[in-house]
Design a protein around this nucleic acid. Structure first.
Length: 298
DNA sequence: TGCCAGGGATTCT
DNA sequence: AGAATCCATGGC
């Protein structure tokens, strides 16, 4: 989709079924989120593009998302990269028709799709961020995971202040790989998680792992599973949130289990075998099924 | 207060 | 290969 550009703003056209409000519900799920800020109907975020900090503000207008740059006029390249980031972040290029058709005949998905129609899989476009966030979220409650991310970002990210609020970028692998183990432990990451994050920072800082190349791999999951600290859940989480794989499926996800328990009005959480059976019909759209079910927990 | 949390590696059968 | 066990720490 070709951005409409004026001197004051840039617009990206959105699919007919795009629902900005539903996306904002997802984005607003934690009060501890510090990688963007939601102000009424605006989303404000800081990115680092070729070493420069670029603050942008997003609003919804009929048929499009409008991007404005409150601090500095962007270069053409910065505009282009922000547009690409937003298309990635808001999942604007996926046609959901196949998912919606499948969901019509699915007793579990039909109600959630009706309720949250137009919700996209809100992504984490930055591969390092997606991997680190997956590691941080392993086996701890989400509230504490956000606390860890907040400390991590505010210790090692870059920031600017706009209208009295501080905006942060996610730290670069190059910054993190240079840290002593003890500095990560001090954030109250476990020893293992500190090791995993340093390992990921190392392969990304050297360029051995990068998103563009990973996307060209015939088997992205196997490549991700080679990374220490990345198991089946994390690999599928990253494929879903960063690599736009509609069939990615974090089967072991506790949130998925709780959502299914609630949707099916069960006394206990479903077993993995039961989930495999329930989801047989979702083939090719497991990531969207999971994301809509997560939404039902908010 | 004890169980649980958007798991994974390691070690045991 | 599949099943236990450890890791570690805060939330509720």
């Amino acid at each position: 989709m070709k951005p409409i550009q004026s001197t004051r703003y840039t617009e990206i056209s959105t699919p007919a079924d795009f629902n900005y409000e539903e996306c904002l519900v997802h984005l607003g799920r934690s009060s501890q989120e510090n990688l963007y800020r939601i102000k009424e109907d605006k989303v404000i975020k800081l990115l680092k593009i070729d070493g420069e900090l670029v603050l942008f503000q997003l609003t919804s207008v009929p048929g499009a998302l409008r991007i404005e740059f409150p601090l500095n006029a962007p270069t053409p390249n910065e505009t282009k990269q922000v547009v690409a980031y937003i298309e990635d972040w808001f999942d604007l290029t996926t046609d959901l028709q196949g998912f919606y058709e499948m969901a019509e005949t699915d007793p579990i998905l039909n109600p959630v799709v009706q309720q949250y129609f137009g919700l996209r899989v809100i992504g984490v476009p930055d591969l390092f961020e997606a991997l680190v966030w997956a590691i941080m979220g392993q086996q701890i409650n989400l509230t504490f995971a956000y606390t860890l991310k907040k400390r991590f970002v505010e210790s090692y990210g870059d920031s600017v202040v706009y209208e009295g609020e501080t905006y942060w970028t996610f730290p670069d692998p190059e910054t993190i790989v240079a840290l002593p183990f003890a500095d990560l432990r001090a954030l109250q990451l476990t020893g293992r998680k500190s090791e995993y994050i340093l390992g990921i920072a190392a392969v990304m800082a050297t360029g051995d792992l990068d998103k563009k190349r990973l996307l060209q791999e015939p088997d992205m999951e196997s490549k991700l599973l080679e990374i220490r600290g990345v198991g089946a859940w994390s690999a599928n989480y990253v494929m879903m949130k960063c690599l736009h794989d509609a069939s990615a499926f974090p089967l072991a996800d506790v949130g998925l289990h709780n959502a299914l328990k609630a949707q099916l009005d069960m006394e206990r959480k479903p077993t993995l075998a039961e989930i495999t059976e329930l989801s047989a019909n979702w083939s090719g759209w497991e990531a969207y099924a999971t994301f809509y079910l997560w939404r039902s927990l908010l």
